[in-house]
Design a protein around this nucleic acid. Structure first.
Lengths: 330, 330
DNA sequence: TGCAAAGATACAAACGTTTGCACAAATCGC
DNA sequence: GCGATTTGTGCAAACGTTTGTATCTTTGCA
């Protein structure tokens, strides 16, 4: 492959001038620049970014660390981030942790070894705190999104979890449901803590009692949602706010099994607006977290060197599953 | 950050020995190796892969180029590939083309500039042929998956498109449907050409006529599926094999709108086993393409330097939408 | 004409590894 | 006990850029 040396030799100048010409340094004569660009094109030159990165001590790569890529939420985040970063000349290196803290540590080390320009992170659910992140990354810019460590400084992009859960719960109340439980997810993650708070606040604002017995923890997948659904039925609930989408699906499985009609006898609102929620019967009311926009926001935060926390609004999408009087039409 | 020089200095040996010790070269004494590993650990050494890559002329990065990351099919492929490659010490650099050939060219150039160890590619739908790929990549190993250029040599991982379409169509015939059309997708992609062939073969093997008028081309998204669905109804079809999943969904929209019962009056089988297909009502019979396994296979083909074509079987998942006598139970 | 300032390029040292070759010391065969 | 082989390290040159400093050339102005 041709190098800047080859170009320099061909033109009778030095590699340094070629380098400066190609990187747009104003100290090289316009005429020289044009000549360099011409021969570079003719010789099919492609700059070796590895060498450039070594010399500069950092690369044009941004690392993205996420639990799993094949979750609509995360793949959308990546999609948003990738399109923004690509525009700005960055490439993205993706690492999945599969919810394992050790894998997360390994991923961060790898990224550090590649001297990435920055890291976008959504941490493994059972990571106790952000110490390992700070220790490994040092001064590499870090942007956290969705799942963030509150104790870690720097840029954060989070959903309006509390507000979203509040809206969802209030919507159930307004629709006429009265004994509303919640599939609360994991309290190890700030996002779920906030959703629980929003749920509680909505109940209290409406003068309804908050009952700890109707809070079903560690429900995040379909199976645990199903089990919690059975318990909620037994406890006499007539509605559920689910902090996840798949857990809501599981609860509906339980309701169908018991012959309880949704939405007439039982209302339910879920959280992530996964594709299936609009297509299932009854269609599931959800909160749209705008994952693509979250990814874009994280990328922009990196590019602009922001250090603050941005909150992405959550929007309630009313569908059949929370429509008590069944006046649904599409 | 500490370098191998620092370690060498600390031990009174040379950087070359340190390098050899750390990379497991058998020509360094066991005792020395242990000493090096110990001080490396103590000094918190992390090898600078950028420098190593420059020297070696290639990196431990594998590039993945796909149309869009937020499609369940592709994100699952990536998931499969990433887990295998990570095991083997590789990292993955992801580039989306958003179905644009220019973006694909740019992505391949970027990967080449990073001197990636290999590229896994699923090309943009409207790319005429693989010339640009060959020209840019040169001798960088290339593994194509799902959407492959038949004219390009080297490793390919494809679905059993013809066989899958055959199974799906025969299933419709056996269920009792008689006038079966197809939502055929784009003939610019080999995969869809093969599916059409399988559909045709199944009809002919069963003594049913193949009617070109019942082939609806360029249907791949929900909207085009809807429109083709209306046409199929008008043409008197009683079933459709759809080469996509979202197009099948669109066709069902059309059937519902016209008050035609699925599956009693009209049967339908789709192709990609997207998550929603199992959850919608009626649930959609589909072909499982095993995207995760395709990604794994692509990664293994890269690691093992395979150059052949592997065919991943497609498995029919019978659900409600093709169950004419409505004996469905779950 | 002379001298300073600016403009353009050259020089050379990095960045942190890897690796072919050389060389010394240790081991072996006879 | 001597030459031949093996074993372990050191030396130094890469890999292809970038960039601070030096040098040379041109221009401007008095």
């Amino acid at each position: 492959m041709t190098t800047i040396r080859d170009i320099a030799r061909a033109l009778g100048i030095t590699p340094s001038t070629v380098s400066r010409a190609l990187s747009g340094n104003p100290r090289v004569k316009e005429e020289t620049r044009r000549a360099v660009e011409k021969t570079a094109r003719e010789m099919g030159y492609e700059r070796n970014v590895v060498a450039a990165n070594l010399r500069k001590g950092r690369s044009m790569i941004v690392g993205i660390v996420i639990p799993r890529i094949h979750r609509e939420f995360f793949s959308n985040c990546i999609g948003g981030a990738e399109s923004v970063l690509n525009q700005a000349g960055y490439s993205v290196l993706i690492c999945q942790t599969l919810e394992s803290v050790e894998a997360e540590i390994q991923a961060l080390k790898t990224l550090k070894n590649y001297r990435v320009a920055g890291v976008l992170l959504s941490h493994a659910i059972n990571a106790p705190n952000g110490d390992h992140v700070k220790e490994i990354l040092g001064n590499t810019p870090l942007i956290q999104f969705d799942r963030v460590f509150p104790d870690l400084p720097g840029a954060k992009i989070v959903g309006a979890n509390c507000d979203g859960a509040y809206k969802a719960t209030r919507h159930l109340i307004e629709a006429g449901y009265r004994k509303i439980g919640t599939l609360a997810g994991y309290m190890t993650s700030q996002a779920y803590v906030e959703r629980l708070a929003g749920y509680r606040m909505a109940l209290e604002d409406a003068g309804l009692p908050f009952d700890e017995k109707l809070v079903y923890y560690n429900t995040i997948v379909r199976e645990t949602g199903y089990e919690a659904g059975l318990k909620a039925i037994k406890a006499g609930c007539d509605a559920l706010y689910s902090a996840g989408a798949f857990s809501a699906l599981g609860a509906i499985d339980a309701l169908k099994e018991k012959g309880i009609r949704v939405p007439e006898d039982f209302g339910i609102v879920g959280t992530a607006n996964e594709g299936f929620t609009a297509l299932m019967t009854p269609s599931l009311s959800t909160l749209n977290q705008h994952p693509f926009e979250m990814g874009e926001a994280a990328a922009h935060a990196f590019l602009e060197g922001r250090l603050d926390t941005q909150v992405i609004p959550m929007e309630l999408i009313e569908r059949q599953s929370s429509n008590k009087n069944n006046t649904w039409q599409k």
